[in-house]
Nucleic acid binder design. Sequence first.
DNA 1: TTTGTTGCAAAACGTTTGCAGCCTC
DNA 2: GAGGCTGCAAACGTTTTGCAACAAA
Lengths: 150, 150
Amino acid sequence: MKDDYSLDAVKDIFTKYLAERKHRRTPERFAILERIYSYDGHFNAEILYNAMKEEYRVSLATVYNTLELLLDCKLIVKHQFGDQIAQYEKTFGGVVHNHLVCTKCGKVKEFSDKKIRTAIQNKKFVHFDTSHYSLYLYGVCSKCKTSKKK
Amino acid sequence: MKDDYSLDAVKDIFTKYLAERKHRRTPERFAILERIYSYDGHFNAEILYNAMKEEYRVSLATVYNTLELLLDCKLIVKHQFGDQIAQYEKTFGGVVHNHLVCTKCGKVKEFSDKKIRTAIQNKKFVHFDTSHYSLYLYGVCSKCKTSKKK
DNA sequence: TTTGTTGCAAAACGTTTGCAGCCTC
DNA sequence: GAGGCTGCAAACGTTTTGCAACAAA
């Protein structure tokens, strides 16, 4: 329930985006958006597709199509942490975009840091309009460091 | 010619890495390493594979195998800028790890910024040993901003 | 009614894998 | 000589595409 407010706001943004581009307000698109905003961490296309079946059946093609639209209107961001599977996450609700990626086990953790954020946000370019950013720190997590299996 | 020094240094690192892990010093691996260090920007597996044909014929499988080794000994880094094609770049010779990625045309430019770099490098974690980082700023480049084709 | 969108399945694509033969060590 | 490495080609898994049927505007 706690996220009802932001979910409405997000739906609103999506509706406006669709109207602007003369795209249609299909039930599939909004069902996918709702499901995405029920997640807190990362998800990929397959996870989303499987989860969708419970509430509103859509095809994988529609899932990908909708992800593309949501990326375009910046309601989600896309990550690729080394493997081939694209990961997504919602952008509404104070998501941080800094990630610790373990190069041994592939696990991803998030962190936030004010100094880093302001340093990045203060950077302006003459020939480039920045909309968002992603920072990945690669290294070895404590779990992989202790287990010595090279 | 200007890079002979660093090329030797790099070969040395690779040789030591191979010896340490009891991997073999095959001519293919060193031919690939040399070719990689002749590049200045980003490259992907296919570009590298095609370029190799000119000097020392190797299979795509060997290219991928060698890229994996070079990643492991940190002589190259891997990027995935939104599309499915993994990009690589050498790490020796003061490469910066900050990238501007245009979300319209996909073009990637590099930049460096001291404040950002120090902010990131000063960040330490108790349960994570950071080895390197990548920062991506997404936005629209000036070329895509002027050409209004949505 | 028009035309953007869907579901389905096939295709595409980069990457990985299995295996026989080769070549480092 | 043993076993890691190579080339080849087939296999893999994610994402994209083509197309007929559907439904939003």
